[in-house]
Amino acid sequence: MALGNAARTPLIRFLGRRSVPKSLDHTPRPHPASPSGTLPDSFAAYRAKAQQHGPLGRASFVSGAIGRNAGASLGPVQPKQGEFFDRDELPSRFHRLPFTEAEIEAVETGGASLYA
């Protein structure tokens, strides 16, 4: 097969020239799955009520409650009744089991030792 100066013909055929629609509606509207079906008044109003791993409002940062004081000043860090911080504080039946030699070898060989 010669690789001469022959023009290369692409295998993909496009139907026409690219065209951007003349009128696109960029007005904000609520998501179809929105529970309220309405937009918030402003981003600041939304942010004041939003939750993501805790409040997103700036009040907790401005007041200096987090990051400016020592951790001890935030209060005692003791688990409530029936709560545990570590699995080792639970009864022994909930403790982690040690890995067996077969499990270690299976992980190290990517599972190939199970079929050898």
Score class of each variant (00 low, 15 high):
18 R>K: 12
15 L>C: 02
12 I>T: 14
57 G>A: 11
50 A>E: 14
7 A>G: 15
61 F>H: 09
43 F>C: 06
62 V>C: 06
89 E>T: 01
109 T>L: 04
83 E>I: 09
69 N>L: 12
75 G>V: 02
73 S>I: 00
73 S>D: 05
3 L>N: 14
4 G>R: 05
6 A>W: 04
46 Y>M: 10
96 R>C: 04
15 L>N: 02
41 D>L: 04
56 L>N: 10
15 L>E: 11
87 R>Q: 05
11 L>H: 13
48 A>S: 15
7 A>C: 10
19 S>K: 05
78 Q>F: 03
28 P>L: 02
40 P>C: 06
45 A>H: 12
86 D>K: 02
52 Q>S: 05
85 F>M: 01
26 H>C: 11
75 G>Y: 10
30 P>T: 04
109 T>C: 08
59 A>M: 07
99 F>I: 07
102 A>H: 09
115 Y>I: 01
97 L>I: 09
112 A>G: 00
42 S>C: 02
2 A>C: 02
77 V>N: 15
46 Y>S: 05
14 F>C: 02
110 G>C: 07
15 L>M: 01
1 M>V: 14
17 R>V: 00
27 T>G: 13
43 F>N: 09
7 A>H: 13
87 R>N: 10
26 H>N: 09
107 V>Q: 14
9 T>C: 01
2 A>S: 08
88 D>N: 11
43 F>G: 15
35 P>E: 01
43 F>L: 12
109 T>A: 05
31 H>F: 03
30 P>N: 09
13 R>K: 15
53 H>G: 09
44 A>F: 04
8 R>F: 06
93 R>E: 15
65 A>E: 15
25 D>G: 03
51 Q>V: 01
93 R>F: 08
83 E>Q: 15
42 S>V: 02
17 R>M: 00
97 L>H: 14
69 N>G: 10
77 V>S: 15
72 A>P: 00
69 N>M: 08
22 K>G: 11
35 P>Q: 03
59 A>W: 12
22 K>T: 07
8 R>C: 09
99 F>K: 14
75 G>P: 00
115 Y>L: 08
69 N>E: 09
44 A>Y: 06
104 I>S: 11
52 Q>N: 11
28 P>M: 02
68 R>N: 12
16 G>F: 00
44 A>D: 11
48 A>R: 13
32 P>F: 03
84 F>C: 01
49 K>Y: 01
73 S>Q: 10
41 D>K: 10
31 H>C: 05
116 A>Q: 06
56 L>D: 03
41 D>Q: 13
27 T>W: 02
25 D>S: 04
19 S>E: 03
116 A>T: 05
76 P>G: 05
45 A>I: 01
